[in-house]
Amino acid sequence: MEQRTLGRTGRPVSVVGLGTWQLGADWGEVSEDDALAVLSASTDAGVTFFDTADVYGDGRSEQVIGRFLRDHPEVTVATKMGRRMDQLPENYTMDNFRAWTDRSRRNLGVDTLDLVQLHCPPSAVIDADATYDDLDTLVDEGAIAAYGVSVETADQALSAIARPNVASIQIILNAFRLKPLDRVLPAAAEAGVGIIARVPLASGLLSGRYDEHTTFAADDHRTYNRDGSAFDVGETFSGVDFEAGVRAAQEFSALVRDLGVTPAQAALAWVVQQPGVTTVIPGARNADQARANAAAGSIDALPADVLEGVTRIYDTYFRAAIHDRW
């Protein structure tokens, strides 16, 4: 699989990585055997980048990855920190940074974390000089090799990109969330900052497998966070109305029907092929999904009618409702 340099980390990573939120919690139960099978199938298919967080399953995702890393030290692992406490700027302190990174190092079984990302913190944290002074200290101490910021909004991304030692930005980018194309991706490319694209399938909508009658388990965030009561609603179905998303996904599926790939693979390829994107991190609940996702990294350039169709679908269903929100 093609490798791209992950911004200021200097590390080569696969254009299709693996998001591991689902290996911890919030997508229904996944056994440890299934989780390890997903990790193995991904690396066998050429994936060299895993994204996790200290709160996924209260550390379970990191721990499973840590066991896998013993035999696969070539994989770059990005974790995230900051969601173990209330989202108040005063909780983003040097003491807490040390405690959070120490816990992640234990979970992953490493001395130095490859990449630590602030986990969608308040804007005041992203804008504060002290935040980056503390992160620089962790680099100097050898606890982390590099740091980035996972963001909810384009404005947050632009603020972080302006910082000289930010290695990467993680942001929601998919065929239903086009705003990062306007300013974020060009700014990141100019600054040499990597872009990690998350929620690339709009929580599964872009797979084309759902209809208006589809339901999800009670412990799945696609059930309990549709109103944003647990965390930012943009993380669930990219913040789009579910019924509108189903209709838009049906149009997207029709748009890519003759490409010889699944709608999910076409949606992932669309993200990979956006200028400035380093890697895309779809999740997978089983080995077959992991292999299918990885294959999207080898799809030829999408035809112009697909690219134009994505913009048309976005303008029809979503631009007015969400473009200015994130």
Rank of each mutant, 00 (worst) to 15 (best):
V55Q: 05
A254I: 09
E152A: 09
L259C: 06
A320T: 12
L268I: 15
E235A: 15
L108M: 04
F176N: 00
D211E: 03
F49A: 04
D140T: 12
S298E: 15
V125D: 08
V272W: 05
S203V: 04
A191Q: 08
L158P: 00
A146E: 03
L307C: 13
S203P: 07
A41H: 09
I322M: 02
D305P: 04
Q289W: 06
L181C: 05
A130S: 15
P89S: 14
A249T: 08
R8T: 12
D51N: 15
I172W: 03
R11F: 11
V110N: 01
F231C: 02
V199N: 08
D182F: 00
I313V: 11
D71W: 01
A294H: 10
E212D: 15
G245C: 13
D227Y: 07
A130Y: 15
I281S: 04
A189N: 12
L118A: 05
H221C: 05
V256M: 09
S61Y: 06
A218C: 01
A296E: 10
D182Y: 01
D102M: 10
D258F: 00
L108I: 02
E308C: 01
L173Y: 12
A269Q: 02
D54E: 14
A175Y: 15
I65W: 03
E141Q: 04
L135V: 12
K80E: 10
T131A: 12
R291D: 11
D155Y: 10
A189I: 02
V256W: 11
Q87R: 09
G309A: 02
D33C: 03
G7D: 11
A45D: 10
F242R: 09
V13M: 07
G148R: 00
G208L: 11
A188M: 06
L135H: 07
Q156E: 15
A191K: 05
D155P: 00
V139R: 15
E32M: 01
D315C: 00
G19L: 03
A287V: 01
A37P: 11
A294I: 07
G228Q: 11
